[in-house]
């Protein structure tokens, strides 16, 4: 099939970007979306043009690198997948596809479709851990029993891949789903209890500092989340935050 692509091109963080139009022919339904971009880039290179830069790495939906806004939606038209798992059979011959970077003040564009998501790292650094030494003198793993439901729930929260689709989808560019997933993982486990208050206060504080918007519960984040992180996490972070604020 043949496609018309409208791709955001921006030379660097300071430059003013714009949508450029490209044609790709010989697109095969079995190709992944990123492989389709590989084909475009091969063409561009052979014709002496600069290829389109985009983030990608594992190409199996787990590293969270790929981050494209495709036709107005993060990771494209299908639910519960990342861009690298989107296949071209989801498009039709002759389609026009608009490809843009994630848009958020906290995710500035570095080049073309590549954005800087280190704000997520800084939120994690503010408290997304349990302060336990890695020296090997910890107690036996089975001496901390965890109810299976809690463990499963914590796991579900922990499957967040940090791709940023939640921020990209949210009309407020809010990072609440991301932050709440991490807070939830530890809030649900007995190991995380000791530092629960400090963790939630510090992480929310950092989240605000990074310039993300506030949550207005539109639910867009959870619909676009490739890992199906649930909105319950957001209720939980709100609860944890209030608890921590009241306790002081």
């Amino acid at each position: 099939m043949k496609l018309t692509l409208k791709i955001w091109r921006q030379k660097n963080a300071q430059a003013k970007g714009s949508l450029e139009t490209y044609q790709v022919n010989d697109v095969d339904g079995d190709m992944s979306f990123l492989e389709m971009l590989d084909v475009l880039n091969a063409d561009l290179i052979e014709n002496g043009q600069d290829p389109v830069e985009f983030d990608h790495d594992c190409r199996e939906g787990i590293c969270g690198s790929c981050s494209l806004q495709i036709n107005g939606r993060p990771h494209g038209p299908k639910r519960h997948i990342t861009t690298c798992q989107l296949h071209m059979r989801s498009f039709n011959d002759g389609d026009t596809v608009v490809i843009e970077p994630w848009r958020a003040k906290a995710f500035p564009v570095i080049k073309d479709l590549v954005v800087d998501r280190t704000a997520f790292d800084r939120i994690q650094q503010a408290g997304g851990y349990i302060s336990v030494n890695t020296s090997g003198n910890t107690i036996d793993a089975n001496s901390i029993p965890v109810e299976k439901d809690d463990a499963d729930e914590a796991f579900n929260s922990a499957t967040c891949i940090g791709c940023g689709a939640c921020v990209a989808a949210c009309k407020n560019a809010s990072a609440m789903l991301f932050t709440s997933a991490k807070v939830s993982q530890f809030a649900l486990l007995p190991q995380g209890e000791v530092e629960a208050s400090r963790r939630v206060l510090n992480m929310v504080n950092q989240m605000d500092k990074e310039g993300f918007g506030a949550c207005s519960n539109t639910g867009a984040c959870y619909i676009e989340c490739p890992k199906d992180i649930s909105l319950e996490n957001i209720a939980r972070i709100n609860r944890e935050y209030l608890k921590a604020s009241v306790e002081g």
Binding site: T138, V146, K148
Partner: peptide, 25 residues
Amino acid sequence: EVSANIIDQCVAQGVPFAREYGGLL
């Protein structure tokens, strides 16, 4: 020899390993 320590370490860090209904790994 150190393999067992890894599991202790990871559980202490909050890695959500699969568990049985009794709460054990």
